[in-house]
Design a protein around this nucleic acid. Structure first.
Lengths: 145, 145
DNA sequence: TATTGTTATACTCTATAACTATA
DNA sequence: TATAGTTATAGAGTATAACAATA
């Protein structure tokens, strides 16, 4: 959201947490624009990307990659499977584990959506110079490390 | 969440949206630590801070400040009123509007919690130099503008 | 007519805890 | 015993749409 003119923000002006939320709202809005009508959300696309880049990954590992609980990774997997984007295959050598794989449709959907989202991500950050964008990525990475 | 070693992240590595989410998870975790047992969340504290700094603000304006719908601002106000932190007073001159005000208890709670959260926000960003932190705030602000 | 607050409803995201199958 | 997946449940956050009161 944008700052409202004339409003007092007190300590919020100096909180990284609040600045992050404002920036993220802007990016989530941009994501929505880029994917309008595609029935997809940031965590769902993230899951598809992780599965696509790591074929055979387990649900638990997917949850770790996303920073959420196993049960949440399961619901994401359920969604992706219902949409026909992901298959649960038996894991060779461990009967407790599902190996997750993108289907053909999942690959196509992920590819198309990735392009749109990357493009929109760049567009939304056009306000920053290339150097500033790179520096922002670096600082965010350092903060989350 | 931290990056998982050995995992492939594909385009996520270059998306500001994903970097923001990872950084925000770190900060929200820090918020939780700073406020453990205090029954408070980031949007709720934000609402208290905005009301405290802008006495008599309307629910609609509060929603705009927070970047959420009127109905959401209403639920936050309900929560704050139930907790005894906020009063809805009649607005002089416009019978449709509530003027929101912190109670004594609300002021005390907000003051105490603000101090803790600001402190933790600084602690969590200790990984950054003072200059880097300032630069990060500037870039996030520019991105959200 | 337009705006404020309200209510009803629904969906996403996330967590915890307990259960089962397998290791 | 420990781990992967599952199920049940709950809460927070958010949105949209329709409504009443007031402007």
């Amino acid at each position: 959201m944008k700052r409202v003119a004339g409003l007092q923000y007190d300590v919020l002006d100096d909180l990284l947490g609040f600045a992050l939320r404002r920036a993220q709202l802007a990016m989530v809005g941009a994501f929505g624009q880029a994917t309008r009508g595609a029935d997809i959300t940031p965590p769902r696309l993230t899951a598809l990307i992780i599965v696509g880049a790591n074929p055979g990954i387990s649900q638990t590992a997917l949850g770790e990659a996303l920073g959420i609980a196993r049960s949440g990774a399961m619901l994401l997997t359920d969604w992706a499977q219902e949409r026909g984007f992901v298959e649960r295959r038996n894991h060779p050598g461990d009967g407790r584990v599902w190996g997750l794989h993108l289907t053909r449709a999942g690959e196509q959907f992920a590819q198309k959506t990735k392009l749109r989202v990357v493009d929109q991500d760049l567009k939304t950050s056009r306000r920053l110079t290339t150097g500033e964008r790179r520096e922002l990525l670096r600082l965010l990475d350092k903060l989350a490390a």
